[in-house]
Amino acid sequence: MPRTLSIITAAHAPSASYLKEAYESLSAQELPDGWQWEWLVQEDGETGTVAAALPADERIKAASARPGGPGVARTVALSRATGELIKNFDADDKLLPGALARDIKKLDELPEIGWTTSRVLDLLPNGEVVSWEHEDPAEGLIPRGQTLREWRENAWRLPIHPVTMCMRRDLCIALGGWMALTSAEDTGLLIPASVLRDGYFIHEPSMLYRKHPEQVTVQQYHVDEIERERRRLLIASRADALAQLCG
């Protein structure tokens, strides 16, 4: 039986128009021998717009549920995932060649790690592709606790991009999936995971991170400092509690 990578995407009506390009970048991926992927696309809402925007492909498993935010949508999709690895993939982004193969290879080669992340390139509205605005770390292992410590010490600027994370299923399930936050739900999964298991940073870019006016990270509720501080406190407190409980 082939081994499966489950790719999980939360989408809503405003992001449906980007799904065609996301799918094209996914279908162009070459996986290692013995591997296959499934794409679980979960609409945050029940308009039917998302399912209608998806092509006919038996590897796509679309569903919808009442609105609850992207974290809830991703975790609902997780309940349908059959893969041993779970890959985060935003509806408006595009995978670069070799992205999935590199994740699989590292998690296969290094049984001691629980997750991977990688470099991203920003895709601007005019089509220009530029490097992420922050300096990336060198390729290599990320010891438990390091990501949380660097996040705190660098004014809450993440040293790695959570949108690229790929994680072992058991770790993702043990953490309850993505945190039910209004935004930054991927940070809410990555930071707690990073205090439980070592990770690995892949320096080769894996994703085009699309910048556009409708994206979550430019909305007022995401950048509001009071709400942002509450998210940080909750994520960090959860990670601290897990680190203490698990030694």
Score class of each variant (00 low, 15 high):
Ile7Ala: 10
Ile8His: 06
Ala10Gln: 13
Ala11Asn: 08
His12Phe: 15
Ala13Met: 06
Ser15Cys: 07
Ser17Tyr: 00
Ala22Thr: 13
Tyr23Gln: 09
Glu24Tyr: 12
Ala28His: 08
Trp35Cys: 00
Glu38Trp: 02
Gln42Gly: 15
Asp44Ser: 04
Gly45Tyr: 09
Glu46Lys: 07
Glu46Ile: 13
Thr49Lys: 10
Val50Thr: 00
Ala51Arg: 09
Ala52Lys: 06
Leu54Thr: 09
Asp57Leu: 12
Glu58Val: 11
Lys61Thr: 05
Ala62His: 06
Ala63Phe: 10
Ser64Phe: 07
Arg66Val: 07
Arg66Leu: 06
Arg66Asp: 09
Pro67Asp: 01
Pro67His: 05
Pro67Trp: 04
Gly68Val: 00
Gly69Thr: 10
Val72Glu: 02
Ala73Thr: 07
Thr75Gln: 05
Thr75Ile: 02
Val76Lys: 03
Val76His: 08
Leu78Glu: 01
Thr82Pro: 03
Thr82His: 13
Gly83Asp: 04
Gly83Met: 04
Gly83Glu: 02
Leu85Ser: 02
Ala91Asp: 01
Asp93Arg: 11
Lys94Ile: 04
Leu95Gly: 13
Leu96Pro: 10
Pro97Phe: 11
Gly98Lys: 11
Asp103Trp: 11
Ile104Pro: 14
Lys105Tyr: 10
Lys106Gly: 03
Leu107Gln: 07
Glu109Val: 07
Ile113Val: 05
Trp115Tyr: 15
Trp115Lys: 12
Thr117Glu: 03
Val120Gln: 00
Leu121Ile: 07
Leu121Thr: 04
Leu121Val: 08
Asp122Arg: 07
Val129Lys: 14
Val129Gln: 14
Pro137Asn: 05
Pro137Val: 06
Ile142Val: 09
Arg149Lys: 14
Arg152Phe: 07
Glu153Lys: 01
Trp156Asp: 03
Arg157Val: 01
Cys166Tyr: 06
Asp170Ser: 11
Ile173Glu: 15
Ile173Tyr: 06
Leu181Glu: 00
Leu181Met: 00
Leu181Ile: 01
Asp186Thr: 13
Asp186Leu: 12
Leu190Glu: 03
Leu190Trp: 15
Ile191Asp: 04
Ile191Asn: 05
Pro192Phe: 15
Pro192Trp: 08
Ala193Cys: 14
Ala193Asp: 10
Tyr200Ala: 00
Ile202Val: 09
Glu204Trp: 03
Pro205Asn: 08
Leu208Phe: 08
Leu208Val: 06
Tyr209Arg: 02
Arg210Glu: 07
Pro213Ser: 10
Pro213Thr: 05
Glu214Trp: 11
Val218Glu: 11
Val218Asp: 07
Gln220Val: 00
Val223Ser: 08
Asp224Met: 00
Glu225Ala: 05
Glu229Val: 02
Arg230Ile: 02
Arg231Ile: 00
Leu233Met: 00
Leu234Lys: 12
Leu234Asn: 08
Ile235Pro: 14
Ser237Met: 15
Ser237Leu: 15
Arg238Ser: 11
Asp240Leu: 10
Ala241His: 15
Leu242Phe: 14
Leu245Asn: 08
Cys246Glu: 05
Cys246Ser: 13
